[in-house]
């Protein structure tokens, strides 16, 4: 069963087509990945899939609903959560409160309930706190609940973004380069967490630069180059795909690594 099906996504900026008819499927319960050289459109794809950008053309079916053209808010309410490549925490809030914002989402009680501390307020707060703490424990930030989010070191800020997303109990989790700026040990630990989240029932779609990580953790990969899908399949298939090798190493398999678009 596919949780997310996108067809023919197009997104242009000025004269440049960052996405040029991309198809993507994410099977429920899987860890999927989008890979590709720099500038291939990966982050744009995540932005379109989470409603942060509106696609110029194409369809997005998510959890049985047609989501194309809807605002981010509705993607979230349909069960989608995400992290950002350039971290976007609520820096003035504590670690716990960041996760609580994620846990409460759009389900906060009314102003009257808040001011009068009605039962609705108390149960909602208790629920948010419980889910937030659980999410912090899942990523290993349980001990830092009261620290200001802005004071965390970089790697832990990434984990907090993950916790905030997880606290809302999403069906689909989009992770935009979650291991960026982490060392190998931290990144491996992160992938363990991602696996455990998948085992706990959250479908994961990640964009990642680090090929070793991606190959280890993903069940399914989609490869982008110049805004187009050039390959899709399991890790072994992708590893042998000539188009992928060419895109990453350049025609002729020379030195020089990933070409910058």
């Amino acid at each position: 069963m596919s949780l997310l099906v996108a067809r023919g996504l197009v997104k242009g900026f000025g004269g440049v087509r960052a996405l040029d008819g991309v198809d993507l499927e994410v099977a429920e319960g899987s860890i999927s990945a989008v890979i590709g050289p720099n500038g291939s459109g990966k982050t744009t794809l995540l932005n379109v899939l989470s409603g942060a950008y509106r696609a110029d053309a194409g369809s997005i079916m998510f959890a049985g609903a047609d989501m194309a053209g809807r605002p981010p808010l509705q993607f979230a309410r349909q069960g989608l959560a995400r992290s950002f490549q350039n971290i976007r925490l609520f820096t003035r809030l504590s670690v716990l409160d960041n996760a609580r914002v994620g846990a409460m989402g759009g389900h906060g009680p009314s102003l009257a309930a808040v001011l009068l501390r009605l039962a609705a307020h108390r149960t909602a707060e208790a629920m948010a706190t419980r889910r937030a703490r659980a999410a912090l424990d899942q990523v290993g930030l349980g001990g830092l609940a009261d620290a200001p989010a802005g004071s965390l070191p970089y790697a832990q800020q990434r984990l907090l973004e993950l916790a905030r997303a997880v606290a809302g109990r999403p069906r689909l989790l989009l992770l935009d380069e979650p291991a960026a700026g982490m060392n190998m040990t931290e990144a491996m630990a992160l992938m363990d967490i991602v696996r455990r989240l998948r085992d706990g029932g959250i479908t994961v779609l990640l964009v990642e630069h680090n090929m070793r990580l991606v190959m280890q953790v993903s069940d399914h990969l989609t490869v982008l180059d110049f805004g187009r899908r050039i390959a899709a399949g399991g890790p072994d298939e992708i590893r042998r795909d000539p188009a992928v090798i060419a895109a990453y190493l350049g025609p002729g398999h020379g030195e020089g690594g990933a070409p910058d678009a």
Binding site: L80, R88, G106, E125, A165
Partner: peptide, 23 residues
């Protein structure tokens, strides 16, 4: 309350706040 947290979240990172489902 959640409202105060939501206000500060909106100020600090609006797009991230709306992607938690917050209006």
């Amino acid at each position: 309350s959640w409202l105060g947290r939501a206000m500060i979240a909106t100020a600090d990172a609006e797009i991230a706040a709306s992607l938690t489902g917050l209006d």
